[in-house]
């Protein structure tokens, strides 16, 4: 049975969210498909997460674990939504199928998988690990189908819409 040396705190999701925002900031700067302000906005979002973590530490005895988990998970969900959003933007608005495919396989899919994995570990139940594995399998399947359909067919489909 999988057993962690130390239990995860709810703030781990906050930390994960900060990392994702920082990564997004650097990636959007490197890709050159975005306005100059976008990376700085993501950096500001990471700073916001850091402030959240500071507040969480200061009010540790006042905030219950449920509340801490709620806002930490919400922050992580925001970070993931932004990653997916970037992916969709590249695919739909910029029509960069190749870049969107690379982004999906190297950023979107791993970040969602990592989040699902740690979420299941936080639950402390092996069945959650199983859930995460099933979720990741479903995503791999989805990506696989996208590859099978092919870029041209997807482009045509998007063009029709």
């Amino acid at each position: 049975m999988l057993k962690l040396a130390t239990e995860l705190l709810p703030e781990f999701f906050l930390f994960l969210g900060i990392d994702f925002f920082v990564a997004l900031s650097l990636l959007t700067c490197l890709m050159g498909q975005f306005r100059r302000t976008v990376p700085y906005l993501y950096e500001a979002a990471a700073v916001f997460g850091y402030v959240n973590m500071l507040m969480s530490r200061e009010f540790l005895s006042i905030f219950g674990e449920y509340m801490r988990f709620s806002y930490c998970f919400l922050y992580l969900a925001l970070a993931l939504a932004n990653i997916v959003g970037i992916n969709v933007y590249l695919l739909v608005s910029k029509k960069l199928w190749g870049l969107a495919k690379i982004f999906a396989s190297s950023v979107t899919f791993p970040t969602i998988l990592i989040s699902a994995f740690f979420f299941s570990l936080y639950g402390g139940d092996t069945s959650h690990v199983l859930t995460a594995l099933l979720l990741s399998s479903a995503m791999v399947l989805g990506v696989g189908i996208a590859f099978l359909v092919g870029p041209e067919k997807v482009k045509n489909w998007l063009g029709r819409r």
Binding site: F15, D19, V22, L26, Y50
Partner: peptide, 18 residues
């Protein structure tokens, strides 16, 4: 951005560890 990122991540990790 790299400098700011490193600072944010290091500070966040320190707080989480504490």
């Amino acid at each position: 951005l790299l400098v700011i990122s490193m600072l944010i991540i290091a500070a966040s990790a320190a707080i989480y560890y504490a």
